[in-house]
Amino acid sequence: MTDDAKEAARARLRRAAARVKKHEDERKELAAAIIAARQADLKPSEIQEDVPYDRNHVGRILKAAGLTHPKGKRDA
């Protein structure tokens, strides 16, 4: 492989890595917004209406944040 081809490959890697990092940052921001919405007393079903995630994924995000209640253990 020529030096030009190697440099082009490395440049492509850097661009792709930057896009993935940006995507990860955006995903983390959405998770934080989901958590804030739940803390503002939005129901998970209401949150689901506004995000591109299904209810199971919303539930996993809330569970990781400690914002779920086992069935039958809800505070009024």
Results as ranks from 00 to 15, higher is better:
residue 1 M to V: 06
residue 5 A to E: 14
residue 13 L to H: 15
residue 15 R to T: 10
residue 16 A to D: 13
residue 17 A to L: 15
residue 17 A to H: 15
residue 19 R to Y: 12
residue 20 V to Q: 11
residue 21 K to M: 15
residue 23 H to T: 03
residue 24 E to H: 08
residue 26 E to T: 08
residue 27 R to D: 09
residue 27 R to H: 06
residue 29 E to M: 11
residue 29 E to D: 14
residue 32 A to Q: 12
residue 32 A to R: 12
residue 33 A to E: 12
residue 34 I to H: 02
residue 35 I to G: 07
residue 35 I to F: 07
residue 35 I to P: 07
residue 36 A to R: 11
residue 36 A to E: 12
residue 37 A to I: 02
residue 38 R to I: 02
residue 39 Q to M: 05
residue 40 A to N: 14
residue 40 A to I: 03
residue 41 D to N: 13
residue 47 I to N: 00
residue 47 I to T: 01
residue 48 Q to A: 10
residue 49 E to I: 11
residue 50 D to S: 12
residue 52 P to H: 00
residue 52 P to W: 01
residue 53 Y to D: 00
residue 53 Y to I: 01
residue 54 D to P: 00
residue 54 D to C: 12
residue 55 R to W: 05
residue 56 N to D: 09
residue 58 V to P: 07
residue 58 V to S: 06
residue 59 G to L: 04
residue 60 R to Q: 11
residue 62 L to I: 02
residue 64 A to R: 11
residue 64 A to Y: 00
residue 65 A to V: 03
residue 65 A to T: 04
residue 65 A to W: 02
residue 67 L to P: 02
residue 67 L to E: 03
residue 68 T to G: 08
residue 69 H to L: 06
residue 72 G to V: 04
residue 72 G to T: 02
residue 73 K to F: 08
residue 75 D to K: 07
residue 75 D to Q: 05
residue 75 D to P: 05
residue 76 A to N: 14
